[in-house]
Design a protein around this nucleic acid. Structure first.
Length: 390
DNA sequence: GCGACAG
DNA sequence: ATCTTGTCGC
């Protein structure tokens, strides 16, 4: 484990060797290095994902000239390195409602008290955010290590045998042929957005007019994240908030398009299928990435409408379907009460301009917007009066 | 034994 | 799913 103050001091000293301008906030902090990536030919981007109180923050630092000897000094700060200690020097900016901590324009902040670095408009700045220095002994140290939150403790699949059993039962109920209403008037998209630190999720449904693709109704439901993400058991994580949101709808859709697989699933019971059986409504699985199955990439054409069978367990589990010219294919499969051919027709109809269906696009936008609004903190309430920066 | 693995 | 920045075209 590396002391955070030590690490950041090192970064700052290295980067701003000539300008020893620091703030000492003494803010206890815990987190880990989330990602180190090559950023361009000469930059390395270091992202520290941290938990501080109940905020989810991303600290970042550019390290210039990675090709020089200097870069070697950073090798010990590998991805996953744990950091505990004190936040030492930082600048705070607010960009489009998002809080950003920047180490790179730290000195500008000190000098001018208002930053406009790299063309970003900076609305507010402050170091008073950390005035309420928590007592170290009372501080709740949130363990934000991804392994603990998403995978750790859940690795043993036998913990989830009951869910696999449920999937086996559902598999018998799937209807793989068209049982659609004579006229499809409304089509819905469903999606869930997450807040990793608050452990909240917002499920949403957007109902579109099948003819015009205009939004006619939306419904939402927020709840705690209670089920981990496990490929194959994904539906048990996302369906609970979706069922709640569905209850709130006045206009019930004739068809639902899921941003996930249906039959193209290890047990043949992906989220689209699960949801379709649960609601007894025709559903389509329309995923961005393959989960199981194989298809002939060479044989797949490059034009909108081109498709290849996705084979799994010697069966056609779905289609790799090109929804736009020269663009990565989508993966369409039966959810419930619809044939694969009809499902592909609807997906194409719903993708007049973009790779993703309009249903998915609409609900994705809604759900992320709402989650952002509900989890956005006003870190500067005292600045809302006019004397703040005089 | 190891990799792959929707969102 | 979450997060980031850069570039291009309307």
């Amino acid at each position: 484990m590396i002391e955070f103050s030590e690490a950041i001091n090192f970064l700052l000293l290295d980067f701003r060797r000539e300008e020893n301008l620091y703030y000492y906030s003494n803010k206890p902090y815990t987190g880990l290095i989330k990602q180190i990536s090559g950023y361009s030919d000469y930059d390395i981007l270091l992202l520290l994902k941290c938990v501080n109180g109940n905020l989810n923050l991303v600290y970042k630092k550019y390290i210039i000239n990675s090709k020089s000897e200097r870069y070697k000094n950073f090798e010990y700060l590998g991805e996953g390195t744990e950091l505990h200690g004190f936040l030492h020097g930082y600048s705070l900016t607010k960009i489009g409602g998002r809080i950003d901590f920047r180490f790179d324009d730290f000195d500008i902040l000190v000098e001018k008290k208002l930053v406009d670095a790299k063309g970003y408009r900076v609305d507010k700045w402050s170091w008073r955010i950390f005035d309420d220095i928590p007592n170290m002994e009372n501080e709740i140290w949130v363990d934000n290590r991804e392994g603990n939150m998403e995978v750790g403790g859940y690795k043993n699949d036998t913990d989830f045998l009951p869910y696999y059993t449920l999937q086996n039962e559902m598999r018998e109920k799937v209807i793989k042929e068209d049982r659609l209403p004579s006229a499809i008037k409304y089509i819905a998209g469903v999606d869930v957005a997450y807040h990793e630190v608050l452990q909240k999720m917002v499920g949403g449904i957007v109902v579109l007019d099948a003819e015009t693709l205009e939004v006619v109704e939306t419904a939402l439901h927020e709840m705690e994240i209670s089920f981990p993400y496990i490929p194959g058991l994904f539906s048990f994580r996302e369906i609970p908030p979706l069922l709640e949101a569905y209850k709130k709808l006045n206009i019930k859709p004739d068809l639902i398009v899921c941003d996930a697989h249906g039959l193209a699933h290890p047990q043949g019971v992906g989220m689209a299928t699960h949801l379709g059986i649960e609601l007894d409504i025709p559903t389509i699985g329309c995923a961005k990435k393959r989960l199981v199955g194989y298809y002939d990439k060479e044989a797949l054409g490059t034009q909108r409408g081109d498709s290849q069978s996705l084979i799994w367990d010697s069966q056609e589990a779905g289609k790799a379907l090109r929804t736009q010219d020269n663009i990565k294919s989508m993966f369409v499969s039966i959810g419930h009460k619809i044939s694969l051919e009809t499902a592909c027709e609807w997906v194409l109809k719903l993708c007049p301009n973009y790779r993703l269906p309009e249903t998915t696009r609409a609900v994705d936008h809604l759900v992320n917007q709402v989650l952002k609004e509900r989890t956005d903190f006003n870190l500067f309430p005292e600045d809302d009066n006019e004397e703040a920066f005089q």
